[in-house]
């Protein structure tokens, strides 16, 4: 049996690496004595996986995790108990029990981000909006990525336009950072990191954005079926 859970990763806990996060969950599961399945072998480890792990430094409102369990447990009790031992900024917001199914990572194909960045110059939101929307109409925006070829990593140019979904400018926040929402491809069918989008945007539009100041939050992860985007949980 599998528990599919949705959880947050907020505030300073965005600085936990994937490995640290896995350890935190492992410890928390053992604290509440969850009947978790262990892998076979010399060094057994609990079976659970987090889909599309976040890069270090990104917050999220919506991460997904599959947990293999050996016996049925009450979902509401599980959420209540695990949230007691988890930190305030990492909380399970929803969970369901599945008999068996596709792994959560194979289902997810779009990620929705909120991106905040310090606009290093005096430019109005309106004019920025205009230049960005012009930029988004281009058929080709190339970025360079290192791709593995055998043992070496070779710089390869790729067009990111097919990886872009809706991108909207929300305005300025209380720190005078510009706020952008972006839907980007994720998973096996192509992947674009929000940082790469901002690098390309800053480069092509001569925006001189202070990329060190980027604050990124993943707001949602979506699956896609017959051109319909939906929430998997």
């Amino acid at each position: 049996m599998i528990i599919r859970a949705k959880f947050t990763k907020r505030n300073y806990l965005k600085y936990l690496s994937h490995l640290d996060l896995m350890r935190l969950f492992q410890r928390s599961f053992s604290t509440i004595q969850m009947p978790i399945k262990y892998s076979e072998g010399f060094n057994p480890h609990p079976k659970f996986s987090i889909a599309n792990p976040l890069s270090l430094g990104l917050e999220s409102e919506c991460e997904y995790m599959d947990i293999d369990i050996t016996e049925h447990i009450d979902i509401d009790d599980f959420i209540k108990e695990i949230n007691m031992v988890l930190p305030e900024d990492i909380q399970i917001t929803k969970a369901i029990c599945l008999e068996k199914g596709e792994s959560i990572s194979s289902v997810l194909s779009w990620a929705y981000y909120e991106i905040k960045v310090d606009l290093n110059q005096e430019e109005s939101v309106e004019s920025l909006e205009e230049s960005i929307s012009k930029w988004l109409k281009k058929e080709e925006v190339l970025i360079t990525r290192l791709k593995k070829k055998g043992k070496n990593k070779v710089p390869t140019e790729i067009n990111i336009v097919p990886l872009l979904g809706n991108i909207t400018i929300k305005g300025l926040d209380e720190n005078n950072y510009i706020v952008i929402n972006a839907l980007l491809r994720t998973g096996e069918g192509g992947n674009l990191k929000p940082v790469q989008l901002m690098e390309a945007m800053s480069r092509d539009l001569n925006l001189n954005l202070d990329l060190d100041s980027l604050l990124i939050k993943r707001i949602a992860l979506y699956a896609e079926k017959d051109k319909n985007i939906y929430c998997p949980l």
Binding site: Y12, S17, P87
Partner: peptide, 15 residues
């Protein structure tokens, strides 16, 4: 914190 190695050294907030 975005620029340093192991930023979780500097955040506290532990159990």
């Amino acid at each position: 914190l975005m620029k340093v190695e192991k930023p979780a050294r500097y955040i506290g907030m532990e159990k």
